[in-house]
Design a protein around this nucleic acid. Structure first.
Length: 1125
RNA sequence: GGGCCUGUAGCUCAGUUGGUGAGAGCGCACGCCUGAUAAGCGUGAGGUCGGUAGUUCGACUCUACCCAGGCCCA
């Protein structure tokens, strides 16, 4: 049973990959893999969930390739894995897309539509995109415990039609029957299997448990803060949402205004703002304690501002004096909006709890100058208008000074009551009225457009405002330090990840976890209507036990709005009725809990211990230090006081080939599906793996072509070469003692130096790959393999070709096949985790088709073992030397402009060291490659070169120290030839310098050579090679014969003959060409598989061409001849 | 303002504890080889290894400062 023929060229690698996918599906290859490795030591990979909200991009492919490579690697190393993918499901991301789908513009649209229907639409969207992403991941060759995408779609449809309908599905532990809504809520749990979904009941209740622990330790609180706020979405926008995509260059109207000082007639503070709408909420003015302020006269008024901002003045002025900021402290002023009711109400207008409880003054009374370190002169006047209800920093300053708070805006950006005519107007429409008030009060100084980076809503591009809101926070005071301890116990790749994470933790404020939206984790905080007391519920069981009303509305639903909101509990303080706050949670809680929720922390604690902490996690690092890595750490710290993962592998950002970020609108984005089918995913995966992960990865078709040309096609060519000749010779691998885990068999024995060399290289590379991948370094692995592919293709096979196509069937030929077979099979196992498709294709033919006992898939095999006994360092050195001599010889031929096809009589080589183990075989290899009749080593390099002698700094530096410089100089001036002779005969070199004698051992002297002029020579690293350039008539004749052979070979191919076809060759010509054919007739016949060489014109049915060689003409013809024997 | 990363050929990047020639791929030019190879090989042009100072016998490599770019925080 021969191998299946392999085409020399694959037209469509992507098509081939689809066939492999079908094979895996038909043979259930992934399940077989799990069975094979069940019960082995565990390697725990915890997947960072991908937001199931859109199709995957090629940047997801990068991360998923890493995940799959290491999953496959550790599986082959004999580990049991979980293979659970994760989908991130809850949060504003999904809401935004569903709102777009439904054409909604505001929260009111959602409430009109109905929370129940809206939340179901969110779930439906997640299920549908989880199905899409599952298909795309499968296409990438990512082996995970995937759900059937069609089943996910069925659930999505059923959820929209009748969520309470009961369904039965087959799970890994048997049939499961439940309502559609509950089946969706149980996805990813052990009885249903498949990917985990962060909207699952278990995920949500596990977060409740976490929050309750935080609460019990006193870390959970409801507090007020000023947040960036979108008035159209009516929600706070957290800092990381702004960072992602939120800043735009915008031009606003900036205003410079006077604040008239009380008790200083005609004198004013000059302040500047880019947000005039905040002026009616002004409470104090701040100056920098380190800054110098000036008093200036302008016309009949006196103004104060900082010395470094005098350019803010318009018109002539006179400086009256200078003073430090501290002099201004405590001065009071009149605000232009003090007539407003809000400015006259003690404590301000804040509707929020307790904020201004003990503040008895109103804003108008509070107006004074305070000191503030954060005031600078980089913009403005050095005097800052402070509105504690309208800015985060202002708010903190207000708390520090116990100031009243004016918070002017409602959820949708309209001004609240108490602000006179402004009340009821939208924040975007306030400018004119404010300007008019300033004019009327004489406070307006200057108005000017101002362009700056300003945060906008990433969803709707509305300019954000800063709004005082009640939110829920986890205090970082204590947690921060514990998390930093955990962080230090983790291995971060790249290593700077540790510093990044620690930096984030050091600077992190209290963690805001609430969001006033609809689709997300329902925060388990119940608040008493009567006394305001609140409690945190730890899970579903506790809720059931505490419920006093509304349970019947909730029962049977997942813990999401609106149903969860119906459940009331009794207040443990006053006995009143408590209801849930309506906020949902920050989605990073969802992703952070997965080391508990997906591993069975609440339900199967022993199994959880088997898989926690994860050995390895991986995500793109730019954002995740503050997101997923952070939230995992927080939950591991709170729940178990341990790091939830041991190694964190981060990678940078994928960019387009043009060096810019990929953007659809820039036309440089590449869709995942398109890339997969145009490049082939093996190419994509190699491209990903060959990159250093801490650098941004340029991705595109040009780079993919390079990978195909340099990696995939050469690999395929070698495979095709092997199969072609093995089939011609009927060679088949040994079927005795076949082990399915090691289909390459034991290391073959051979007396051929090329065989032993390539086997040594193979094991060397196997060792490097093993070490690299254990160390989470795919880049090093690809470098090692790429070098090996070059050795295999451009040296081993190239130099061994004749062994395969010679006509006798001898031991050497058999050994050649056995060796190449062994090498190819072991190589594809090394490559299998990196490029799972092409290796599978090769395996199916090389192994599976030949060995009845073979595993179904290359991915079921064991990781190749390293046979260090065959890694002979001397052998490797010698072959490296042979390649070097060859390369230099070709170089020297080139410099003499003599083609390799022209035989030459001799090559002369001088080798500085290491020729001891040189053999005749090496000589033969070099002669053949260089096309010379002999290779001679010369004793005296001086025949070819001149010398330079240098001190061996590495040895002499430590010994001589500062004297090294003088020794170097003395060596330079010494007779180099004499020194070299001393060294080469193993004697010490004595140098006399300024009456002092230095003895240098041979090791301590390095010899460098320079080629002498006038010879066709080349030199490199202590090796020198020359070729004799004299071409005798005999050599010329032989050269012509080789030239004719080459042309006949091309003609054979052009005529469409098979490589094993026998032919008759015709030649019509005379002179030296005819002589060459006569003299070298047997050679020509053997090389071209000609059974006859006919002198004369080729017959009409032969394929013939006229050739010009060295100015002479010859007509050649080839004709196929059937041989019967 | 603070933290982290990056700076090596026209472009994209390797360069393993400091050790003497500074490399690859792409692109360009010229040549070679082809009985696996629309592949490969060789040669050439092109570099103050961001800059300055320091440590050292010796720095692309270590240290400090500076410059430029990126990311994060403020």
């Amino acid at each position: 049973m021969p191998f299946q023929d392999v085409p020399a060229r694959v037209d469509d690698y992507a098509k081939q990959e689809h066939e492999v996918l079908q094979l895996w599906k038909d043979t259930d290859a992934f399940q077989t893999l799990r069975t094979l490795h069940a019960g082995q030591p565990k390697w725990s990979f915890l997947d960072g969930p991908v937001t199931a909200n859109n199709p995957l991009g090629v940047h997801h492919g990068w991360g998923r390739t890493y995940k799959d490579v290491f999953n496959r690697f550790w599986t082959m190393r004999g580990r049991e894995l979980r293979y659970q993918n994760g989908f991130d499901c809850q949060g504003l991301w999904v809401e935004v897309e569903v709102e777009k789908e439904l054409g909604f513009r505001s929260k009111r649209d959602i409430e009109t539509y109905g929370l129940d229907a809206f939340v179901r639409k969110c779930k439906e969207r997640v299920l549908r995109f989880a199905a899409v992403q599952t298909e795309q991941s499968t296409r990438l060759g990512y082996w995970m415990d995937w759900n059937d995408p069609d089943h996910l779609r069925e659930l999505a449809t059923a959820l929209m039609e009748s969520p309470l309908q009961r369904m039965t599905v087959q799970g890994p532990r048997g049939e499961v029957t439940d309502t559609v809504e509950q089946l969706v809520g149980r996805l990813g749990m052990p009885d249903l299997g498949g990917s985990y979904f962060t909207f699952s009941n278990e995920n949500n209740y596990m977060i409740w448990t976490f929050l309750k622990q935080c609460w019990q330790r006193g870390w959970l609180y409801c507090g007020a803060d000023v947040m960036p706020w979108c008035s159209r979405c009516a929600t706070g926008i957290s800092q990381h949402e702004i960072v992602t995509d939120g800043y735009q260059e915008l031009t606003h109207t900036s205003i410079t205004l006077r604040l008239p000082l009380r008790g200083r007639q005609g004198e004013s503070l000059l302040v500047w703002t880019t947000t005039p709408w905040t002026l009616p909420s002004n409470v104090v003015a701040a100056v920098g304690p380190e800054l110098t302020y000036v008093k200036v006269r302008q016309g009949d008024e006196v103004l104060y501002l900082s010395k470094g901002t005098l350019h803010m003045l318009r018109g002539a002025y006179e400086v009256l004096g200078e003073m430090p900021g501290s002099v201004l402290e405590g001065w009071t002023y009149d605000g232009p909006f003090d007539h407003l009711e809000a400015a006259r109400r003690p404590g301000g207008n804040g509707a929020l709890r307790d904020l201004a409880q003990d503040v008895s003054v109103c804003a108008a009374e509070a107006h004074r100058v305070v000191l503030w370190d954060e005031v600078s002169e980089t913009e403005g006047t050095g005097i800052v208008h402070v509105a504690p209800g309208c800015g985060a920093e202002d708010f903190r300053l207000g708390k520090e000074h116990n100031l009243p708070i004016l918070a002017p805006l409602d959820e949708e950006g309209y001004v609240l009551a108490g602000f006179g005519d402004f009340s009821g107007q939208h924040v975007s429409a306030l400018l004119d009225g404010i300007r008019q008030t300033l004019i009327d009060s004489g406070c307006l100084y200057h108005v000017e457009p101002y362009t700056h980076r300003y945060p906008t809503c990433w969803r709707c591009a509305t300019e954000l405002v800063f709004r005082l809101v009640d939110e829920w926070f986890i205090s970082m005071d204590e947690l921060r330090h514990a998390m930093m301890e955990m962080t230090k116990q983790i291995r971060w790749i790249p290593a700077f990840g540790l510093d990044r994470e620690l930096d984030w933790l050091r600077n992190m404020h209290d963690w805001m976890i609430s969001k006033k939206r609809y689709w997300g984790l329902a925060l388990p905080f119940w608040e008493c209507d009567a006394c305001g007391h609140y409690e945190v519920i730890g899970d579903d069981r506790e809720l059931a036990a505490r419920a006093v009303a509304g349970w019947e509305d909730f029962e049977g639903h997942t813990p999401h709005r609106p149903y969860i909101d119906a459940v009331k509990i009794a207040c443990s303080t006053c006995g009143g009725q408590m209801q849930r706050i309506t906020d949902v949670a920050n989605p990073w809680l969802d992703a952070g809990i997965v080391s508990f929720s997906t591993l069975g922390y609440r339900t199967e604690r022993e199994a959880w211990r088997d898989w926690y902490p994860a050995h390895w996690i991986s995500e793109s690092f730019p954002g995740q230090f503050r997101n997923w890595f952070y939230s995992l750490l927080a939950m591991g710290t709170v729940l178990e006081n341990s790091p939830p993962f041991k190694e964190c592998f981060g990678y940078a950002t994928l960019i387009a080939e043009d060096g810019r970020a990929m953007h659809k609108s820039w036309g440089n984005a590449i869709e995942f599906n398109e890339a997969a089918d145009r490049m082939g995913v093996d190419v994509m995966r190699w491209l990903y793996c060959a990159h250093k992960p801490e650098n941004n990865l340029p991705f595109g078709y040009q780079r993919a072509d390079e990978v195909r040309r340099q990696f995939l096609i050469p690999l395929w060519n070698m495979y095709s070469f092997f199969v072609t000749y093995a089939n011609l010779d009927g060679w088949e691998p040994d079927r005795e003692e076949f082990e399915p885990g090691r289909p390459e068999g034991p290391t073959p024995h051979s007396d051929n130096v090329l065989d032993t060399w390539i086997v040594a290289r193979l094991n060397q590379v196997t060792e490097r790959c093993t070490t690299s991948l254990q160390d989470s370094d795919t880049h090093a692995a690809t470098l090692a393999i790429a070098a090996f592919l070059d050795d295999l293709s451009n040296w081993y096979i190239r130099r061994s070709r004749r062994r395969y196509w010679k006509s006798t069937h001898d031991t050497d030929k058999h050994t050649a096949y056995a060796t190449l077979y062994h090498v190819l099979v072991k190589l594809i196992k090394l490559l299998a985790p990196l490029t799972p498709f092409v290796t599978e294709v090769m395996y199916q033919n090389l192994v599976r088709a030949m060995q009845p006992a073979a595993y179904d898939s290359v991915h079921h095999c064991d990781w190749p073992e390293v046979d260090m006994a065959v890694v002979d360092a001397t052998l490797l050195d010698q072959m490296a030397l042979a390649r070097q001599i060859t390369s230099l010889g070709l170089g020297s031929r080139g410099s003499a402009n003599i083609k390799v096809r022209q035989p030459l009589s001799a090559a002369l080589a001088y080798v500085h060291e290491g020729e001891a183990a040189w053999s005749e075989t090496h000589t033969a290899i070099v002669c053949e490659e260089l096309n010379v009749k002999s290779l001679q080593f010369v004793e005296q390099e001086a025949q070819l070169l001149s010398y330079e002698v240098l001190p061996n700094n590495k040895l002499l530096g430590p010994r001589l120290g500062a004297a090294l410089g003088r020794v170097r100089a003395a060596l330079t001036h010494a007779d180099a030839g004499a020194v070299v002779q001393q060294v080469q005969s193993g004697n010490a070199v004595a140098l006399s310098i300024d009456g002092e004698t230095f003895e240098l051992t041979p090791d301590e002297v390095l010899i460098r050579t320079h080629p002498a002029a006038g010879l066709a020579i080349a030199t490199d690293r202590g090796v020198t090679v020359a070729v004799e350039t004299d071409i005798t008539p005999e050599l010329r004749t032989e050269g012509l014969a080789r030239e004719i052979v080459r042309r006949l070979q091309v003609m054979r191919r052009d005529a469409g003959f098979n490589i094993a076809d026998r032919i008759v060759t015709y030649s019509l010509g005379d002179g030296p060409l005819a002589d060459a054919l006569l003299t070298w007739g047997d050679y020509v016949k053997a090389e071209t598989l000609s059974i006859d060489l006919v002198a004369g014109a080729p017959p009409a049915e032969a394929y013939s061409e006229e050739h010009r060689i060295d100015g002479m003409t010859i007509t050649l013809g080839v004709q196929r001849r059937v041989v019967t024997n």
